[in-house]
Design a protein around this nucleic acid. Structure first.
Length: 566
RNA sequence: CGGGAAGUAGCACAACUUGGCAGUGCGCUUGGUUUGGGACCAAGAGGUUGCAGGUUCAAAUCCUGUCUUCCCGACCA
């Protein structure tokens, strides 16, 4: 592409509306443009990057014999009713009506449609296994879009689905996909980790997430310092350690704690560590109130609580609901309260602890678990950094990540709901065993930028860059420079090397800064020394500038591209 | 959905408190001087101050409503 006479712009100052590094750099480099909250256009340069990402995905999907197709975005709403997902997606589904008042939605995910599609073909065990995928726009009405392309309401997703006759088959398909994903993210140059995750609205047997490591990540990931254990915080099992050995005091003490409400306040007021207190929270679980107990320095894990109680309908009790109970907000405790109690298993290791007295301005000291009755005792807390690894008992540490891919062993959830069955060798009808596998294309793009940038702009990995080479002409009025640059440009094009020719009538500093901002990996500068057949070669991620003969440039560039391509 | 902030030229912002010609920097146009890391001088173009209503002789400024965007939280594959 020749920059003169093309659609190309950059923005010099920070964009007020884009706080995240990736969102800001992508907007400033003229790659994306927001049209409304969580909805973006890809400009020519950004679209080239997007296609490069898509192509890596396509190549690796082809490699494992997954076939591409394309489904609609406009979908009759009742398709989602069959697997009871109208509720689980609920308000995050974009809904609309046609002129006959029939209900449609913009598809948030496509398990149902793919399952129905498979029914067109699957009759017998001989038709299995196979896998299908698409790269298509998904719509989710996010409560709060943020961080540029990372959490958006309309986004490109690669979603793949595998169809097998049994769990052994699924295991093979799943592993194929899993390995393909590893190759895909490695080729994109993303620093990622794989963690165990919640199956959420997808349902099924197993979920693993591919997480790009970055500080603005919305997920907290748990790793072991010693072994290969990894998990998303929301499903990470907590191990009970540090059983307190002090002797139990027989009598609890009622103590006055005027206006001392939060764990922090109580801890300071009594000069006791938060780990000597028990946090009492009232939750509304499926319409019924429960008292939840965790150690003072622990957090309740809603995913675990939700699984334990087998419902997604969980929220903190409202002030109104608490007001009706025989307790006072800020002084809630397990003693003499008329609520079923769900206690975290770590609380059972505590002795002589502090709880609210269900009475304004009072707490109990020296309380022990014999002083009340817990109805359910289970792991309902988040692990903390430094806690014991569930696998090897070493210490756990945290990192932040962006979920860029997710793989699910779905099992037969959808095939049973939608009657996708096959005749087995014994002529009995069995449900097809499915897996589903997603990659957020736009999120990959953002994650790459989050991980690859400096104060000057984006540093694209070779495989992703919109153009691999930028030829910068120092003086566009100089005929020999123009001629040499154009000649080189044509040479590159002949060799199918994606090249950008900066032939704009700008000062050279402007061109250098623009090429740095948009992150082109290789820069060739054609300047004064062109009369001696010398030009300059500089890599975006290195400081050094090398003078080389114009006749060697093509081969040198080919070498660099080959070396950096994965 | 709860809390906070903000909407003024393509971008970033000032003027608002105390109502009185709509401003600055970058970018853009023209001319000139420059020319290897975001040049300089001069002259210009560009605005329904988010939108609607109200108060007033007069509203970017005060009042009411509304829309939009961002941040923290809730929610979320």
């Amino acid at each position: 592409m020749k920059l003169k006479n093309s659609f190309f712009y950059t923005i010099r100052e920070d964009i007020k509306d884009e706080e995240s590094v990736s969102g800001n750099l992508l907007a400033r480099s003229g790659m994306i443009k927001k049209t409304s909250s969580g909805v973006y256009s890809y400009m020519p340069l950004g679209y080239k990057v997007l296609k490069n990402i898509e192509n890596i995905v396509r190549e690796e999907m082809d490699e494992i014999n997954s076939q591409e197709l394309l489904m609609p975005s406009l979908i009759q709403e009742d398709i989602y009713a069959s697997a009871k997902r109208l509720d689980s997606f609920g308000s995050s589904m974009f809904k609309l009506k046609d002129r006959y008042d029939k209900s449609y939605c913009l598809g948030p995910t496509h398990e149902e449609l793919f399952t129905l599609t498979a029914k067109n073909m699957v009759r017998s065990f001989k038709d299995l296994p196979f896998s299908l995928y698409q790269i298509q726009t998904k719509f989710r009405d996010e409560a709060r879009p943020r961080y540029g392309l990372i959490r958006v309401r309309e986004f490109l997703m690669k979603d793949a689905y595998s169809f097998d006759k049994d769990l052994e088959g699924l295991e093979v398909s799943y592993n194929n996909m899993y390995n393909a994903y590893k190759k895909i993210f490695t080729r994109m140059g993303i620093d990622y980790r794989i963690v165990k995750a919640d199956t959420g609205a997808m349902g099924g047997i197993l979920s693993e997430e591919f997480q790009a490591i970055t500080d603005i990540g919305e997920d907290t990931l748990v790793f072991c310092e010693n072994c290969d254990f990894s998990s998303n915080l929301e499903v990470c099992e907590s191990i009970v350690s540090n059983i307190e050995s002090a002797e139990k005091k027989l009598d609890k003490d009622l103590i006055e704690t005027p206006n001392v409400k939060s764990i922090d306040d109580v801890s300071k007021f009594l000069n006791e560590a938060p780990s000597k207190l028990v946090k009492s929270l009232i939750y509304n679980i499926d319409g019924k109130l429960y008292l939840i107990l965790v150690k003072g320095d622990a957090e309740v894990n809603l995913t675990k609580l939700s699984k334990l109680m087998n419902t997604e309908n969980i929220s903190m009790a409202t002030d109104e609901e608490i007001y009706k109970l025989n307790t006072v907000k800020g002084f809630v405790g397990p003693i003499d309260i008329n609520l079923p109690i769900i206690m975290d298993n770590e609380v059972s290791t505590m002795v002589n602890f502090v709880v609210g007295a269900n009475k304004k301005d009072y707490h109990y000291k020296n309380v022990n678990i014999d002083d009340f009755k817990a109805d359910i005792i289970s792991d309902i807390r988040n692990v903390k950094e430094g806690d014991m690894c569930p696998k090897c008992a070493s210490k756990l540490k945290f990192k932040k990540g962006i979920e860029i891919g997710n793989t699910f062993k779905l099992g037969t959830k959808y095939s049973e709901c939608l009657d996708l069955v096959y005749a087995d060798t014994d002529n009995t009808l069995k449900p097809v065993v499915m897996g589903c596998y997603g990659i957020g294309i736009g999120r990959c793009l953002s994650a790459i930028v989050e991980q690859n940038n400096d104060e000057k702009g984006i540093i694209w990995p070779m495989n992703i860059a919109p153009y691999k080479v930028a030829i910068v002409i120092v003086d566009t009025n100089n005929e020999s420079q123009m001629e040499a640059a154009n000649h080189l440009y044509n040479e590159f094009r002949k060799e199918n090397i994606e090249v950008m020719l900066d032939d704009r009538k700008e000062r050279v500093g402007v061109k250098f800064n623009d090429m740095d901002l948009i992150g082109i990996p290789i820069r060739i500068t054609i300047g004064k020394k062109i009369d001696e057949h010398i030009c300059e070669l500089k890599l975006r991620n290195e400081e050094e500038i090398n003078e080389i003969s114009i006749f060697d440039v093509l081969y040198k560039v080919q070498d660099i591209i080959e070396e950096k391509n994965i």
